[in-house]
Design a protein around this nucleic acid. Sequence first.
DNA 1: AAAGGAGGTCACGAGGTCAG
DNA 2: CTGACCTCGTGACCTCCTTT
Lengths: 194, 194
Amino acid sequence: MQYHSGGGTDGSSASATTTTTVASTTTPSTPKTFVACKVCGDKASGYHYGVTSCEGCKGFFRRSIQKQIEYRCLRDGKCLVIRLNRNRCQYCRFKKCLSVGMSRDCSSVVRLVLRFGLANPMSRGVRADCNGNNERNPMVTDLESCSNTRSGCTLGKVQFDCSRATPCPLLVACADVDPPDGGVDSVNGNPTEP
Amino acid sequence: MQYHSGGGTDGSSASATTTTTVASTTTPSTPKTFVACKVCGDKASGYHYGVTSCEGCKGFFRRSIQKQIEYRCLRDGKCLVIRLNRNRCQYCRFKKCLSVGMSRDCSSVVRLVLRFGLANPMSRGVRADCNGNNERNPMVTDLESCSNTRSGCTLGKVQFDCSRATPCPLLVACADVDPPDGGVDSVNGNPTEP
DNA sequence: AAAGGAGGTCACGAGGTCAG
DNA sequence: CTGACCTCGTGACCTCCTTT
Ligand SMILES: [Zn+2]
Ligand SMILES: [Zn+2]
Ligand SMILES: [Zn+2]
Ligand SMILES: [Zn+2]
């Protein structure tokens, strides 16, 4: 997804003539080409860190994992994260990023596989993210070659270090994820705790 | 949290490579690049809290919303707020701040204006969202008539060259758009008194 | 070649500072 | 309290790289 635009259409407001299509059906929300960021609801710019997100949340998450800053909420840790106030609380924004499935080196497929195991339909379904929402996934084909052991995780050619000494950030991220629909948390004997 | 201001008002190259009409950005006999604060008329230093304003009004507004001070007018509540006497009545100054649209979360109003166009009510309606009411993201629709890129900004048919230009000529242009006086608050009767 | 995501860039503005 | 000045997080855009 790219939204460069570049100026093409001009007719400010009420663009004159053809196309337009207006809001079409009555649907009060999401007109058409609008894809919402899973973190704040702003317009998403693509698939970043495993989640459909906007440029802002993408950049914020990148910065957060680069320099390992420790955020802290000045309130109750339950701040609402929406476009208009997403910058109010970094702690809650980052928490939201993790909760929707953002992670550094893993695609959502990896996350799902690690969480549910290869055998779980949830993983194969690949069409769903941690919240059970449909989502396109580019790494479907690699699924078959994925393995997850206690010492490390491998997905295709990518290998992740999940040694106990340094828990894979991926697992940490998954730890906070709200139990997906079924609440299935079986996981395939995967070390989720320290 | 945001910071900086660097040379905010640097003016400099205001080259406006316009396409179609609107040759130079008007201002045939303007001192230079003086942009007035919408609250007091002093020289604005940027877009603060959703409004083109000066450092003084910016700081004043910040302080006002931080510690929720209750101001009170010693007169009739209709003091004129201009640079020379803006410190005479805090009540009326704050009231003016609100009336011109200052709000804590409106920093992105510019983007919306750029997206929807100055004439589109959507751009003005944004202020309603700042109170958390209309959380639904307004940045939908296909009114992509405006774009703002680093190399150039487009507003309707006018194109500005804002590459490395500080500040972006388009932002400066936006400054004079909103009717400086009454009417502004029409949208949602939003700005009330303190 | 085309697509698209990770990471870098840097103007911009929120919030802090502290003489005045 | 005020406001000129400062710091540095933010996000739209860019480049580079990997995958189709
Ligand atoms: Zn977002
Ligand atoms: Zn919070
Ligand atoms: Zn002012
Ligand atoms: Zn007064």
